[in-house]
Design a protein around this nucleic acid. Sequence first.
DNA 1: AGTTTGCGCACAATCGTTTGCGCAAGTACA
DNA 2: TGTACTTGCGCAAACGATTGTGCGCAAACT
Lengths: 336, 336
Amino acid sequence: MATDTLDSIAKKCGCSVSTVSRVLSGKAHSYRISEKTEKRVLEEAGRANYQPSQIAKSLRLGKTDTIGLLIPSIDDTFFSSITSVIIREARKHGYKVVSAETQEDERNELEGLSTLMASNVDGIIAIPSGEKSSVYEDVKRRGIPTVMLDRYYEDIHDIDVVSTDNYQAARMAVDHLVSMGHRRIGCVQGNSDTVTSRVRARGYRDAMKSHGLEASIMLKGSEFSIESSYDSTRDMLSDNCPPTAILALSNKILLGAIRSIQEKGLRVPEDISILSFDDNSLFNFLSPKITCIAQPVHEMGLKAVETLIAKIKGETETSRMFLSPSLVIRESVKRI
Amino acid sequence: MATDTLDSIAKKCGCSVSTVSRVLSGKAHSYRISEKTEKRVLEEAGRANYQPSQIAKSLRLGKTDTIGLLIPSIDDTFFSSITSVIIREARKHGYKVVSAETQEDERNELEGLSTLMASNVDGIIAIPSGEKSSVYEDVKRRGIPTVMLDRYYEDIHDIDVVSTDNYQAARMAVDHLVSMGHRRIGCVQGNSDTVTSRVRARGYRDAMKSHGLEASIMLKGSEFSIESSYDSTRDMLSDNCPPTAILALSNKILLGAIRSIQEKGLRVPEDISILSFDDNSLFNFLSPKITCIAQPVHEMGLKAVETLIAKIKGETETSRMFLSPSLVIRESVKRI
DNA sequence: AGTTTGCGCACAATCGTTTGCGCAAGTACA
DNA sequence: TGTACTTGCGCAAACGATTGTGCGCAAACT
């Protein structure tokens, strides 16, 4: 069954495509189409359950009502939550979203970006994976509205950013641990190519320093993965003078740390306290329930979509937004 | 910076659009374009970093190289895992994916489907939410290739299906519990509008019966949600003669059950054993590690994409595939 | 009777590709 | 010089929508 087109409907109604188009887009009155014709067209379109071809529309109008989402991996609770928000929010505004995964690989990032651009998306929300901002030059040259979400490039100021105030977040985390009596606080970081890890680590270091504590030897880790975190934590725990608390800079890092702690036969929080980034509904079910720094996932998705759409609609000033994290106190930090 | 088009390149090269098109699609030879012209075009296109407009291509060719994914919610580990597989697999075959969420609401399902069809996706992978298969009539009438993933309609046989053998899965689960000595086995199900829940419940009942056990009073639940499962489990545990083991028919149901068990002050598996559906990397970190029935997520995504593409390419026979689940034994089931 | 005005709609261009068909100029051969 | 190919490429239609312009006709004026 071939899909109906303006043309096929026009034929059935005995009028021209333009008339059908105008009726269906509600411009019947301003183009002085008679009520009789209008009704006829409406009827015919209704029974055919006519849907205009978005493709033809896009070609004509130069927009696709589609936003591209470039994300490391949807299979990660933080990213999937934010993706979910973005999809819902985009739809509210009449946008579809097509997603591409980078797997944290810069080549995939470049390729994904090309695919998105070739698909003529109206704008892009990207959580960059690579360290080189040059990946986004093509996007900039073509003037495709873009907002960086969560991660961004510190040296680029003409692309919009929506992120968490990660520096503040890390400081909050350290402050909480210190207020609970901890002084030997280890920190397991992610890939230092990413700002999030760098900024969080900086927050950690500065906070430690301002409490008069030593940070340098307690900061380990090189990847946002369970395996890497497992190794780093193990090293940390085998130290002569191991930390009494560990700050995990992401949910995956948390998991690696937990595994390593379990293997050592240690218990949380009795033997060691732990505080993680990235809240997650499952954290309430881990044993013990994990105290964490929650990023404002919903607000992040919301703002990302909103600012992207503002850009698409012609807003010109670029904005850099750093939303406030919050501390969710549960049971994984012991007072000592 | 306006994007380059065939036309703009043609002008720069002093030849026609058709020539440029043919060169760039590698048909230079068969259309007898001279090497000189070919090189000239290739050069110009290279320096402009020309990307053909997929929209124009789609309009002309009648395909978008896009597959639509209709999913209850990406913010659920089972669905996000499968989404991730689908996105990757689709890209391998040169397809993009645009996703729509239903939130388990039939109205959203219908709307999402319309949106996808209007976007002229080449095919649709759907995890249906509603109970009425009529939602898919429009899709069928238009002849859009579709495969139902995970969930499907038992009364419809002309749409392809890729799912788990849920009946077998439930039987495996019960058999395992029985082999561990359990005889009072409760089961918390999801929304019985969905086949998955119905078939799993049937498997549970039949397995119980074939072991000579009572199932009827031990089967509760009405929704795939933490809250609903929490309520059902609580009721079950307040029974005079509570179960010694609980079979949770999804990961969300597991969480509700755990919460309820925790509140009762019971311990898993000492006081009560639990076996869940839907494996998840976090299950290794719950305390205790959860024994579960794992669906072949990767294979499901893979097969869904493969059969959809086969359909798109013109394959006609419809297939119904029920992949084998596997039992992952961890620590949440005690021998009694 | 001639001119204006308003009504109801159709024509045709346009967006960027792909592709069937055919044309002009060159070469070969008789 | 005429016929017959070959070479190299352009023309134009088509995909399905949107939209500025203008045409034909009748009623209402002057």
